[in-house]
Design a protein around this nucleic acid. Sequence first.
DNA 1: GCGACAG
DNA 2: ATCTTGTCGC
Length: 230
Amino acid sequence: MTTVRIPAGWPATEEQARAVQDELRERVVLDEPGPPPGTGHVTGVDVAYDDERDAVAAAAVVLDAATLAVVAEGTAVGRISFPYVPGLLAFREIPTVLAALEALPCPPGLVVCDGYGRAHPRRFGLASHLGVLTGLPTIGVAKNPFTFTYDDPEPRRGSSSPLLAGREEVGRALRTRDGVKPVFVSVGHRVDLDTACAHVLRLTPRYRLPESTRRADSLCRRALREAVAD
DNA sequence: GCGACAG
DNA sequence: ATCTTGTCGC
């Protein structure tokens, strides 16, 4: 496991952070379909916090996209780099997530983030930001609709409805299990929305949340416990 | 002006 | 995110 330092020049204020988003947003690529579902690698990333001890841990778990078997894992720990501010989540999560990705022994393929990509007040959520910084294809899968609106999708797994910012479709409410609350999918970088949803359905053969994020979630919690223990 | 608000 | 046991249900 690697230890991260907060990058030099990392934004210190909300105003600076928003300015970074406005600049990097220009580099998002939205006109690529993305990797074909069921092929190559899919990597889940997630972060856990101990605000009390100013500690953060991130995990990246690489799955074989066809079998969902774990291929590789990477973790990183560090100090909290930014407070939680809705719309600025990336500045809290990205330094440690980048280090966890760099700790991997193999290419991550598609990266699945816990949160949003295009479904964001300035259309530049965590998944978009991570995609631009790494050049990797990324998508966001969130558990809540944030400030956006949607009509409840049909009850069957696989049905979906637009996630709307006014009249603009910024993502999709996607039912991954029969009769269970949908997840909220949006594109990050170099993936289109239909392909993103197809990936999420392949990643949810059993549970509401993608296998990638479930695995990353348990790994980063374990990494945080172990980091705080010594 | 006052909430609401990804993790 | 995180604090947290048992419990209802498939």
